[in-house]
């Protein structure tokens, strides 16, 4: 039984090549072409992109229904807010600290529930998100400021000389972080870790009997997803200079969920499309603000009917970039 034939190296479609170069250029040029209001829209697009990427690890790669992701976002934001206002820790140092705090929280909270499947896990994560929000409202340990939240958070600064305080600086801060995250996530997708995640999504029992430690990789997804959400929380908190519980409602978790559903499970371009939709949609439909939710609902239903895989489903096989590059490298070596 031998039918070896080398797989043809499929080339990227023309539109993909164009997008690959045009999109980053567009992102760099955009803030110089518009006023602060539109730059801020671009900033929130970036926040949702980061949140989408973080939920995409859990929901898209591993298929775990997590409807409490705003909880991790909140932990990151409040870690930054509290440590900065009470102890004066610089915001820039608090980026990794917030990521670690959210990751640790995810590890502790998810360890006992990680074996739950599908809907059951979903319900527990909803509860987790709500408990976080209620704890914040109830002025947990006297630190969270109750319904008013925490305010007077500093701007991030690099040693005092360069302070990020304008819209355009925030825009670049968030998109550089999104860009770095995308590089990391693409590397993960094309590693044994990414494959292990996908195997678990496809068939948990088969993943176990193929040698994958299901529990470990599920927890890793939650911890990494929470860490990225924690980073988003940090940037958000310093941008607004204040945090309050109303930013971290169940609705926020739903929005992140929608980003993945709209874009396509496990698809990074899909996350960007979904995040663009979520953040730009309210702006475009501002004149019809009354009907916004109606249109939103109709769009979601139409998506599920006609494009259940999302706007840009993940493509697998020989056509993706990293495997293309690795084959190119190989052919140069040989």
């Amino acid at each position: 039984m031998d039918d070896s034939n080398p797989s043809p190296v499929r080339r990227l479609h023309l539109y993909e090549t164009i997008l690959l170069f045009a999109v980053p250029v567009l992102f760099v040029v955009y803030p110089f072409a518009v006023n602060d209001y539109y730059i801020d829209i671009g900033f929130y697009f970036g926040i949702y992109a980061l949140l989408g990427l973080s939920l995409n690890i859990v929901l898209g790669e591993v298929g775990l229904f997590d409807l409490g992701h705003a909880g991790f976002y909140a932990i990151g934001a409040y870690t930054t807010a509290i440590l900065n206002t009470k102890l004066g820790v610089p915001v820039i140092i608090l980026i990794p600290v917030s990521a670690l705090a959210a990751a640790l929280f995810a590890y502790i909270v998810c360890s006992p529930i990680i074996h739950l499947r599908g809907d059951y896990l979903c319900v527990v994560t909803i509860g987790m998100g709500e408990i976080v929000r209620l704890a914040l409202i109830n002025n947990f340990l006297g630190l969270t400021g109750g319904p008013n939240g925490v305010y007077n958070i500093d701007f991030p600064s690099f040693g005092g000389s360069f302070v990020i305080d304008s819209s355009i600086e925030y825009y670049f801060l968030i998109w550089i972080i999104v860009g770095v995250s995308i590089v990391g996530l693409i590397r993960l997708q094309h590693s044994r870790i990414g494959r292990a995640w996908n195997c678990i999504r496809e068939d948990e029992v088969a993943a176990g009997t193929t040698g994958i430690d299901v529990r470990y990789y599920k927890l890793l997804a939650f911890v990494l997803g929470a860490a990225l959400a924690g980073v988003a929380g940090n940037i958000y908190a310093s941008k607004l200079m204040a945090v309050s519980p109303e930013s971290f409602t169940f609705w926020e978790s739903c929005m992140m969920f929608c980003i993945i559903l709209i874009g396509g499970m496990g698809s990074i371009p899909g996350v960007l499309i979904g995040a663009a939709f979520i953040s730009l949609f309210p702006e475009i439909f501002r004149p019809f603000a009354m009907y916004r939710m109606l249109v939103f609902g109709v769009v979601m239903i139409l998506m599920m009917m006609f494009r259940p895989g999302g706007a840009w489903p993940r493509r697998r096989g020989g056509a993706d970039l990293p495997s293309l590059f690795s084959r190119m490298r190989k052919s140069h070596d040989g």
């Binding site: 044994r192 494959r195 292990a196 496809e202 993943a207 009997t209 040698g211």
Partner: peptide
């Protein structure tokens, strides 16, 4: 019980998981 939405090669690559260690 294969992994339906992964490519055939990826299915087999998953088998190597327990013999590799990249973290």
């Amino acid at each position: 019980r294969i992994f339906p939405h992964m490519t055939c090669l990826e299915n087999i690559m998953a088998g190597q998981h327990c013999r590799t260690s990249a973290g």
